[in-house]
Amino acid sequence: MKRIAIIEELVEVKLTSTFNLSKEYTHIRGYHGCRPLDVETYYLNGIKPLTKNDMLLETLHRLKGTYIDDKKIRNAFEKRWQSELSSEEGIWFTVSTEELLNSGHYMIYGSEFIQAVAADLLSHDLLKNHGIPTIFSIDIPLSNISVDWLQCLESNIIQKNTSGGYHTNSPILATNVISHIHPNKIIDWHNGGEIYFNKI
């Protein structure tokens, strides 16, 4: 039976001295900020870590512009792929929606990797032309999260802390994509902390 830990709720209650996240719950509610081209694909396919080819196609689509040709995009992509990909790749989540709204570049510009490619091409603002700012509520199986991250999450719960994020390298099944919202106002730290208004 699915037992979901919702950290925003757990920090508001008094926990017993024997509290153990892994023993008491099967899933943890996480929030994933992104700028999807089609929201429904998340409910149909879940979320999967992108392969190199998937990421390239996504980059080409989002950076299509009158002054950038495919060759320049491909070259910038290859440089970034070789230099920046690390063991920390995967699907990232926060434990609260507030955290995402205060660091909203995922919803405004999308993937951090594609943002880096766009920055190299001086075309960061083009990323606002595709997709819609979205926060998904996801139930992540605890078995998909590393022991280190689980210990960090448990420590944060005990300390009543709802900041920070965590990640998994495992795909998220469509059945664990619970709901989504399109926030109206997001803080844009790439633009001096101004408020980004979602007009879509």
Rank of each mutant, 00 (worst) to 15 (best):
L122M: 09
H124C: 15
N156D: 14
P183N: 00
N53I: 04
H190D: 10
T51Q: 13
Q115G: 13
Y25D: 00
E78Q: 07
Y109L: 12
S163H: 06
T175R: 02
F93V: 01
S143Q: 09
T168L: 07
W189I: 11
T41E: 12
N144K: 07
Y25S: 00
D120L: 15
G104L: 07
P49L: 03
D188T: 01
S96W: 03
I68N: 10
T168Q: 10
A76D: 06
M1V: 05
H182A: 12
N144C: 09
I132N: 06
G110T: 13
L44T: 06
L85S: 08
K14G: 08
P49D: 12
D69F: 10
Q159V: 02
L10Q: 02
S146T: 13
R80W: 00
E98H: 05
P171H: 05
I195N: 15
E88Q: 04
V39F: 09
H167D: 00
N129A: 06
Q82T: 09
V147G: 02
W189K: 06
E24R: 11
I68V: 08
N176K: 04
K71A: 09
K52F: 01
P36V: 15
I187R: 13
Q82H: 12
N20S: 08
H27E: 02
K71G: 04
F197C: 03
